[in-house]
Write a protein that binds this DNA or RNA. Structure first.
Lengths: 184, 184
DNA sequence: ACGGGATCGCAATGATCGTTGCGTTAGTGC
DNA sequence: GCACTAACGCAACGATCATTGCGATCCCGT
């Protein structure tokens, strides 16, 4: 009746544990290059009954989208050094390092293969993080690149190399991208 | 014993027709957002017996990689207007238009989900096309950006928006990327 | 034309998947 | 603590998948 409860949804306790186990199982199986990623397989790995997965997620695509969402919307601390360039360099290097991890990369590829929802989930909060840093600079100096430009120049190449290449970019390379956005 | 024949591989006639039918079936099913992409389903759509697919491709992942390879390594005419900027603008707009097509996009996402081989196949010959245009400019004026830079600035954002976003870039936007590579 | 061998169709089989009805467990608010 | 009910486990089922042996087809070089 009031607000928080509604019609008993139940996010804690065993449900949360099952959810965590399933997510971990997906991550493990996906990074192991298993070509047979099905709900029963995930269930067996997670020590959960397959029926649970069918009821909670319905399909592999939705499960992958959910896993990707909760993996990439982690609470990342946005750098705040006082200098936009330094912030962006640190942030870009951090993103490049993250997506270069084989396990993360495998999850991204799988989520992308699951459809548009899963694909978009791989960006996580990164555009908003970028927007936050740029907004701070705008308050500070009155001038800053648009978020759109920053996404194109930083996120574009980093994700491209990771996802569509067999050689993901290094953190140092990612730092160098900032020069394209902020001519010295 | 000479060279071209080796041990009777057989690329023409019915084999070629079956291959074409299967490729078309995959493209149709993938663009139809079918979440159940299995070899029997593809076989039924292509009017071919499932056994054939199991023997020739073995798995959905390998089939998708093959389809992506032959789809994205098409013979594209590289623009040659005499001006690097014009060449790149035309080429970037063309690439952006291609990857914005829902059918192409669906195939890319599926191929990416199939693993690294399929993911890399989605780039096709585009890096080499870029290299060709840049090399021409280098011969012409002695100076040109590196292929690496051009890939980062052009291919990166175009693919990023298409694959990891629900709003692929427009051709006009893609033309604008050239300014980042070639300051006016 | 013609023979060899690669490729395909067919059929049968075991394994796995996806779904559903029902009973049990265990969060959640009182 | 107690009742309510969401969430899970269990078992059975039909459907589909993946594999294999065998015979027919037809591409390809001679």
């Amino acid at each position: 009746m009031t607000s928080p409860t509604r019609t008993g949804t139940r996010p804690g306790g065993r449900s949360a544990r099952v959810r965590a186990d399933v997510h971990r199982a997906v991550a493990e199986l996906v990074s192991a290059q298993e070509d047979t990623l099905t709900l029963p397989v995930v269930a067996a790995r997670a020590g959960v009954h397959p029926t649970t997965l069918y009821r909670r997620w319905g399909s592999v695509a939705e499960l992958l989208a959910d896993v990707a969402t909760s993996r990439f919307s982690g609470d990342v601390v946005v750098p705040d050094t006082g200098s936009l360039r330094a912030d962006l360099e640190r942030w870009a290097a951090s993103v490049a390092t993250d997506v270069a991890d084989p396990e993360v990369l495998a999850l991204m590829r799988a989520a992308i293969g699951a459809g548009e929802v899963g694909a978009c989930a791989c960006r996580g909060d990164r555009e908003e993080q970028l927007a936050a840093m740029l907004e701070r600079e705008r308050v500070r100096s009155g001038r800053a690149p648009t978020v759109e430009r920053a996404v194109d120049v930083l996120l574009g190449p980093i994700y491209f190399r990771a996802v569509l290449t067999d050689r993901p970019g290094t953190p140092e390379w990612a730092r160098g991208l900032v020069t394209l956005l902020l001519p010295e």
